[in-house]
Design a protein around this nucleic acid. Structure first.
Lengths: 193, 193
DNA sequence: CTTAAACGAACAATCGTTAGGTTGTTATAC
DNA sequence: GTATAACAACCTAACGATTGTTCGTTTAAG
């Protein structure tokens, strides 16, 4: 039953590494700095990961799978496409405003991975973008969407949400629900009266 | 009159370095790689820059000054606040869709700078955000703006635009004008009919 | 004769990584 | 119950490679 490497410990290690990678960047974070943060010797890290690159991949892959799973649930729900859009926007805004340090890696560090690792994540990202595009296409089919390029719409949305990790502070004056609601309103109806 | 270091050569050097920093990231680009791209020896770079960090700062500072100047022109124009908003959105979208490699540095590599350099840019960025916020406040005063947090609106817009450099290709199916128009439409009136 | 613009060679420091050893705990054999 | 094997979870010490940078020198132009 025991798979060794107790779940708890592993989770703490992952969290610490994600924190460092997110704050300083992958290349600017040395194995020695990671080891120090975990009160370990650099060599000990190789008991948990086979390389520095694998560290980054494992973290990103976890986040990606989680995001993909949740998004799929929203897309497969039995409701109108307009409701789906709003659900999706809401979920996504929350997701990125919440556990930021993991998601910042997905946005910033894709190119820090080698070809093999990157290919895996790009493929998942492709499925991801496809799911979101499908919502826009549904909207277009029911004639609810303006004549806006679906690609532009998709990435305008990604940009809006992904960028939250650069400025948003959960302890600040804007709470997550307001943020999410504002995003939905801006994206669907715009900022002007 | 001749300040040495002919303008042309310097410009080419800056362009090449910006390209490398933008594509691979600051920390992942070595001085040797830069030298090779310029068909120089690593030591020769120190005739033009006193350090690697100064390279990054000079590039970012140039871009920042350029952006700030242009934005100021838009904000000080004599026209309605709604027109200002649209001008600003248009200018900004174009700015980022155009000379992407310089702007990607502004968005991605702020934290790669040491404290002194970063402080200078943060201050300029502060002035920048303030200019944009002032437009939103003007709109609110004339009761054109919805009840949306101005901070959220500002950064929603930044996000939308800054993210273009991650996906937009000028040679693709969407031209810059369409992109800019779509951004303005989404941001002011939303994607739904 | 000066100076701009480069060069080759080397510097100390740091990088990711590995080899091999030392613990403490747990499961099995006697 | 005690010895023994096995293993997880670390360690120390060092490896070769690469990092940003500096040194003193050379070349070309005015």
């Amino acid at each position: 039953m025991n798979q060794g490497k107790s779940k708890q410990k592993i989770e703490q290690i992952h969290r610490t590494i994600a924190h460092l990678f997110a704050r300083k960047g992958f290349h600017a974070t040395s194995m020695r700095a990671i080891a120090q943060a975990l009160e370990m010797q650099p060599a000990s890290l190789y008991y948990y990961f086979k390389s520095k690159e694998e560290m980054l991949f494992v973290l990103m892959n976890e986040s990606m799978d989680e995001a993909l799973e949740k998004l799929k649930a929203v897309c497969e729900a039995d409701c109108s496409s307009e409701q789906k859009l709003k659900d999706m926007l809401g979920f996504y805004a929350r997701f990125f405003a919440g556990d930021q340090e993991r998601e910042i890696l997905l946005v910033n560090e894709i190119d820090s991975l080698g070809d093999e690792y990157r290919k895996i994540l790009i493929e998942k990202q492709r499925r991801y973008v496809h799911l979101i595009r499908s919502i826009f296409e549904e909207l277009a089919k029911t004639d609810l969407l303006k004549e806006i390029d679906p690609t532009v719409a998709t990435f305008a949305f990604f940009g809006m949400v992904h960028y939250t990790i650069r400025w948003y502070n959960e302890e600040g004056s804007v709470d997550v629900t307001t943020l999410s609601d504002n995003f939905v309103e801006i994206f669907t109806r715009g900022i002007l009266k």
